[in-house]
Nucleic acid binder design. Sequence first.
DNA 1: CGCAACTCAGTTGTGCACAACTGAATGTTG
DNA 2: CAACATTCAGTTGTGCACAACTGAGTTGCG
Lengths: 149, 149
Amino acid sequence: MASLRLDDQLCFGLYAASRAVTSLYRVVLEDLDLTYPQYLVMLALWERDHRLVKELGTELNLDSGTLSPLLKRLQTAGLVVRNRQADDERSVRVSLSDAGKALREKAEGIPDVIGTAMSLDDAGVARLRAELDRLTESVNAYREATAPA
Amino acid sequence: MASLRLDDQLCFGLYAASRAVTSLYRVVLEDLDLTYPQYLVMLALWERDHRLVKELGTELNLDSGTLSPLLKRLQTAGLVVRNRQADDERSVRVSLSDAGKALREKAEGIPDVIGTAMSLDDAGVARLRAELDRLTESVNAYREATAPA
DNA sequence: CGCAACTCAGTTGTGCACAACTGAATGTTG
DNA sequence: CAACATTCAGTTGTGCACAACTGAGTTGCG
């Protein structure tokens, strides 16, 4: 039965887990002078360079209100460069600088540290990840169905 | 194998799920004029009234930097009252106002809505919740072991 | 007792998230 | 082609999170 008891709520568990993990990243990322959301952007760029702000927003589910200042900070830190597209002046393409590419090496060890801290084997990670993805999917579907255009 | 690929990372799944759920709460809580963290504080108080700021912080894992302004907003909204303790002037006790108590009724239906949106049965909720608690525990233990006083 | 160590709530400053908006560029339609 | 709609990045304002700090209050110890 769904109740108003804090302990029962999956949501609080999710909220607590997310904050705990972010807090762990804070320590690990101190070395790279990155916040966790900045790290996510770098991950996306390491995977595929030269992305539009729009594309990053779609992949990370973040809007320009979050990304614009974040990217500005990454640029100030010398990790990325931003260029207006010539063929569509509305768009801005984000590219890694040499320093941004080089930072990848310093990041190589991070997933293992996080994995160790979580004390989950690969199967456990995959299973939990799948459940969370399903949850996100389901919640977003509900939200879109409830609050239509 | 741990990699730097965004898709592999449990952490991103966690981050995405947490934001999706918070976003759903935003819609549901609009009626009550509460944010999700404010709702968590109200849940804690509905469960047990007259709590010290310290106690709320321990239960929700939030420090005074987050709670103080949040509680001030709840007080401004007329939902809680804050009183310095007579026997220990450092402490502040937070109590529900009549309006705060009354709001509980409007909140009764929320868990079911959230449950529906998650499309998980009770067993699924309990299992995921247990996994997340274990994860939080494990990550926090690692963090405390790594960064000692 | 006296004072150093600690506890507690609160403030300040930074960086997300996100809604609402702006303004420029591009598409669309009659 | 002109009026309108849409798309995109960026800005503004609000509210968390959290680190670092402040200052008042309490405790502990010599």
